[in-house]
Design a protein around this nucleic acid. Structure first.
Length: 683
DNA sequence: GGTGTCTCCGTTTTT
DNA sequence: CGGAGACACC
């Protein structure tokens, strides 16, 4: 008998050994769903003798996929399983990409096996080119992506416009152009995979899906395409944590799925994470409160605090955190949540100035590193000969490329098409001959990254005289190494490996440059409520919990905002504090607490606001006012002054990587690059 | 091509 | 409330 099952609780065990054809496992917050998923795989493999290549395990994020794979490897007591055996374990997109470029007939859809992935980055320049090429009249260009989305859903962002534009035609041209370029965007990967899977032989015996509540209709179709009459499906999810409907998921999809496959349902009810107090509060936010059971003691009350504004809140947090640290709590056990990204700024400033280590969960991608951005375009153009846009980018870029004008670049491209090979720049020849070069190299070549670097003669383009030269060179080499390592164990040609690596840069962009939060670093974690999903912390501070922010002013009646708040409070293991502002900055916010706090049973809350009310209102105002003035003065004092020849004196309000942001009286915020800025720093 | 008025939108973010 | 951008008019 597969041993590990004995350590699971009875609900978890039942789910692991259940052999229902389609099973939907409703797993409550903190109930060990990943553990069950991992042991399900191990059980099927060891006990039921299902080959790993007959299992498809689907997640939404790379992080989840990596965690599952790592835990399978470490939980496999026998030690038989190797990472490369987990062939179809990955995100929906990476599995779709894998199938499309190996066993599905993409030719039927007008593609070749050499297709590459069009990320948002690439799409923007493609949009411009399409509008010019077809001379389309398109309004609100900056919101084109959103408008396309809305158009598909049958609504239009700006209502009826006085003079309609050619958005419909644009959408047609866009999908035509993608085929011409032999590129698929993220949506195409899923859609094309599901179309082709319907008639394909690839039918795994088990499909296992993580975070099922996040699936959208297209992904459901992909699952359907993978199934035949012998396929088992094991889907794990929590309908109480549906917080991404704007990305296409919905609670009703749970029902669609249940009805379509006549799925059996089971539950994981036991939460191991939070104190009884926190769980009792959480129950107020879900449909079936009794299905959430706890095992821990009562714990501390939930603290509700009112601050004058976000700055006072941040100053207060500094004090509170310092006390916690003095009591032996680690920074990494503390998290601060908020509704919108921009709310992190005050915390960052104040924490930085008070020496509190923090990490912010921010989306960042390769686009923010110009040299890598250029280099990826070079690889994309080399690997996919139809990708004209990437080629143009390489040629037109002023810093790293040839700095050609749009006209010259397309003239050059035309002459190549006519096979007039005079005056072709070196880099273009390298791109054209890339495949041949790959074929002349052995797959087991070591130091492939250096060979590639030399082949393209990158030194020529990142100009050795530039102050960025060393930095850029290291960036490219490390990046290449990282990408090549990803496909290291695969027994294919170099070309195939590089092609795969290029797609990985789109699919894994964020994790490659390691910009995301590392939960093991000993620092306070700052993040949006959305980003907190799936994590847990001993101490959780939910900030800016005003009416109009939680829920957000435009979504006052929205159930999803409630679920988002639920996700936030259920991250807390031991201690939960919720605060709001008497003088909120955001135009949507009212100076009162979020209505969600009224839903939490009163006896669980220790409210600082009630104590405040006991004072005479005028006295309270005075107190708050003087407190704010004192704090604001301190805030300004701790900022550095700078003098600018034109704008005069200003305060440095933030430092972001290469840039300073300085606020000037009468001129507002200005950004300066650290390397060449005309500022004189004063004390 | 420049300038003034009026309308609409705003958040969350993965691949 | 503030910014972006379309539209109207010169």
């Amino acid at each position: 008998m597969y041993k590990a099952v004995e350590f699971l609780n009875s609900y978890q065990r039942e789910a692991v050994i259940n052999n229902e054809k389609v099973l939907l496992l409703n797993s409550c917050v903190g109930s060990g769903k990943t553990t069950v998923l991992v042991h399900k795989v191990l059980y099927l493999y060891h006990e039921k003798k299902i080959p790993l290549k007959d299992m498809v395990v689907l997640t939404f994020t790379n992080k989840a996929a990596q965690e599952i794979k790592a835990r399978i490897l470490e939980s496999d007591a026998v030690g038989e399983i190797k990472e490369e055996d987990l062939l179809f374990f990955g995100t929906f997109h990476s599995v779709a990409r894998q199938l499309l470029s190996t066993c599905l007939p993409v030719e039927d859809l007008g593609y070749t096996k050499e297709f590459t992935i069009l990320d948002q980055n690439d799409a923007e320049s493609l949009f411009d080119r399409i509008i010019n090429k077809y001379r389309l009249n398109i309004k609100y260009r900056k919101k084109l992506e959103k408008r396309m989305e809305e158009y598909k859903n049958g609504v239009s962002l700006y209502g009826v416009m006085k003079y309609e534009d050619e958005i419909e035609k644009f959408i047609e041209c866009f999908s035509e152009e993608k085929k011409l370029l032999n590129v698929m965007d993220f949506g195409d990967l899923i859609k094309n995979a599901s179309i082709l899977l319907k008639n394909a032989d690839f039918k795994p015996s088990w499909i296992i899906i993580d975070e099922f509540q996040d699936t959208d209709m297209d992904q459901l179709e992909m699952i359907d395409g993978l199934m035949d009459k012998n396929t088992h499906v094991f889907a794990v999810g929590d309908p109480n944590q549906v917080i991404y409907t704007w990305r296409g998921s919905s609670q009703s999809l749970f029902n669609t799925f249940k009805e379509r496959y006549n799925a059996k349902e089971m539950t994981l009810p036991i939460n191991y994470r939070s104190t009884a107090t926190i769980l009792e509060a959480a129950r107020a936010f879900i449909n079936m409160p009794h299905s959430l059971e706890g095992v821990r003691g009562k714990g501390a009350s939930i603290i509700v605090k009112r601050h004058y504004n976000s700055f006072n809140e941040a100053m207060y947090l500094v004090d509170t955190i310092k006390k916690l640290i003095a009591d032996g709590i680690k920074y990494k056990d503390i998290a601060v949540f908020y509704r919108m990204q921009k709310q992190s700024q005050v915390f960052e400033d104040v924490f930085k100035n008070h020496g509190i280590p923090y990490e912010v969960s921010l989306r960042k991608n390769i686009k923010d590193i110009p040299v890598l951005n250029w280099f990826i375009k070079l690889l994309k153009a080399s690997v996919n000969s139809r990708d004209v846009d990437s080629l143009y980018y390489v040629l037109k870029d002023e810093k790293y490329g040839l700095g050609l004008t749009a006209k010259k670049a397309s003239a050059l491209y035309e002459s190549i098409k006519k096979e007039e090979f005079n005056d072709i720049p070196e880099i273009v020849l390298k791109i054209m001959e890339f495949k041949t070069w790959c074929e002349n190299n052995k797959p087991e070549t070591t130091d492939l990254e250096c060979h590639l670097y030399e082949y393209f003669d990158i030194d020529n383009y990142i100009s050795p005289t530039s102050i960025y030269y060393d930095e850029d060179k290291i960036l490219i080499l490390n990046f290449l190494k990282e990408l090549i390592d990803v496909s290291f164990h695969e027994n294919t040609t170099i070309f195939e490996r590089i092609r795969k690596a290029v797609d990985y840069s789109s699919l894994y962009g964020k994790s490659i440059i390691k910009e995301s939060i590392d939960k093991d670093n000993d620092s306070i974690k700052l993040m949006t409520l959305h980003a907190s999903k799936g994590l847990e912390f001993k101490y959780v501070f939910i900030t800016g919990a005003n009416y109009g922010i939680m829920p957000l002013g435009t979504r006052l009646m929205d159930e999803e905002e409630k679920r988002l708040f639920f996700v936030g409070i259920t991250r807390a293991m031991d201690y939960l504090e919720i605060s709001y502002h008497a003088n909120p900055e955001d135009y949507r916010a009212l100076p009162i607490v979020s209505p969600y706090l009224k839903m939490i049973p009163e006896q669980l809350i220790e409210s600082q606001e009630l104590k405040g009310r006991a004072h005479a209102l005028s006295g309270l105002r005075k107190e708050i006012k003087s407190n704010m003035d004192k704090n604001s003065a301190e805030y300004i004092k701790m900022q550095k002054k700078a003098l600018h020849p034109k704008y005069g004196t200003g305060y440095i309000i933030s430092e972001e990587g290469e840039n300073f942001v300085v606020e000037f009286d009468g001129y507002g915020k200005k950004t300066f690059s650290k390397s060449f800025c005309p500022l004189k720093f004063l004390d």
